[in-house]
Amino acid sequence: MNRVFRWGLIGPGRIAHNFARGLAAVADAKLYAVASRDKARARSFAAQYGDARCSDSYEALIADPELDAIYIATPHSHHFDLVRACLDAGKSVLCEKPLTVNAAQAEVLFALARERRVFLMEALWTRFLPIYGEVRKWLDEGRIGEVRLLSSSFGFKAPRNPQDRLFNPQLAGGALLDIGIYNLSVSQWVLRRNPEHFSASGHVGATGVDEQLAATLDYGEGLMSQFHCTLRAETANDFWIYGSEGQIRIHPMFWGATTATLSNESGELTLARPHRASGFEYQIEEAQRCIREGRLESPVIPHTDTLATMRLMDALRAAIGQRYPFED
């Protein structure tokens, strides 16, 4: 492997800028190649972040023997085919969340990654952020006693454009896959297990995607996680962990938080752990570490965790009657 870790990037859209800014803060890595179906867009993106090669061919980038790994940042609906092509070519992959549109697709990709002996990880950056390390310490030390309830929201008022990926069913739009995944993934991370059952309600809009969803996940013995996600209104966007002896608040925007507050009988403690750059640098470093060590997955967000979240999202979408046309 090259001394400097060489990344390829497919899909230089909005989220890809966060990746590129994070990558610039990783000392032994560089953005080596960028691919977009619009080559001018690839050139414009590359010009902002160095001297990366540019291409209008995803296939050409995937075949480049100089690359150590590929980051995929296309709309959700394209993830499965692109990840599969990368794995077939023996390329390690960091793919934006959600890894796929449904659990069946994820199962195929994880099986292929094992067969090809290639690293694959869902790029859910939240779990790698420094403040989440502090929250985990508080939980493991029992600073709030026994966890009893989780409560969170993720919402903003999105411009109503039927062609935008958020509202376009052909691009696997909707609130749950795009933003609700954070509420689910952090809940799973806090509790380290799957719910026994759930209840959910949602609003499927005129374009056929879920614009709003509220759910209660029941983990048994009175332990619950309640959350809502919406494209229709601005919400508090924080994450609360309530225990028998106190509470933890992960401040807005919880999915990219730098601050958390612990409150218990000893008083209140607020910690700040700023990002070095965009916050994506931590998941990049984890992916590189795993690849260099020959691992096929990261212990921070293993394949089983991604699959568990995908299965939950499948079930939640089914409960509110939301299904994408290409799933039929």
Rank of each mutant, 00 (worst) to 15 (best):
residue 5 F to Y: 10
residue 8 G to Q: 02
residue 16 A to F: 05
residue 19 F to E: 03
residue 19 F to P: 07
residue 21 R to I: 13
residue 24 A to L: 03
residue 25 A to V: 04
residue 33 A to P: 06
residue 34 V to M: 13
residue 38 D to T: 14
residue 43 R to T: 11
residue 59 E to C: 02
residue 65 P to S: 11
residue 66 E to Q: 14
residue 72 I to K: 08
residue 74 T to H: 11
residue 75 P to G: 10
residue 77 S to I: 02
residue 80 F to T: 13
residue 83 V to G: 08
residue 86 C to H: 14
residue 89 A to C: 09
residue 92 S to E: 01
residue 95 C to I: 06
residue 101 V to G: 13
residue 105 Q to H: 13
residue 105 Q to R: 07
residue 109 L to C: 08
residue 113 A to R: 06
residue 113 A to W: 05
residue 123 A to I: 02
residue 127 R to T: 03
residue 127 R to E: 02
residue 131 I to Q: 06
residue 134 E to T: 15
residue 147 V to R: 01
residue 152 S to F: 04
residue 158 A to H: 14
residue 170 Q to E: 14
residue 172 A to V: 01
residue 174 G to L: 00
residue 179 I to K: 09
residue 179 I to Y: 11
residue 188 Q to Y: 09
residue 191 L to Y: 08
residue 193 R to N: 03
residue 195 P to E: 06
residue 199 S to I: 04
residue 199 S to H: 01
residue 207 T to C: 04
residue 220 G to W: 07
residue 246 G to C: 02
residue 250 I to C: 09
residue 251 H to C: 12
residue 258 T to L: 00
residue 261 T to C: 05
residue 265 E to N: 06
residue 269 L to Q: 15
residue 277 A to W: 00
residue 280 F to E: 04
residue 282 Y to C: 06
residue 282 Y to N: 10
residue 287 A to I: 05
residue 287 A to P: 08
residue 288 Q to K: 11
residue 292 R to K: 12
residue 302 P to Q: 01
residue 302 P to F: 01
residue 304 T to K: 08
residue 309 T to V: 15
residue 317 R to N: 13
residue 319 A to L: 00
residue 323 R to D: 00
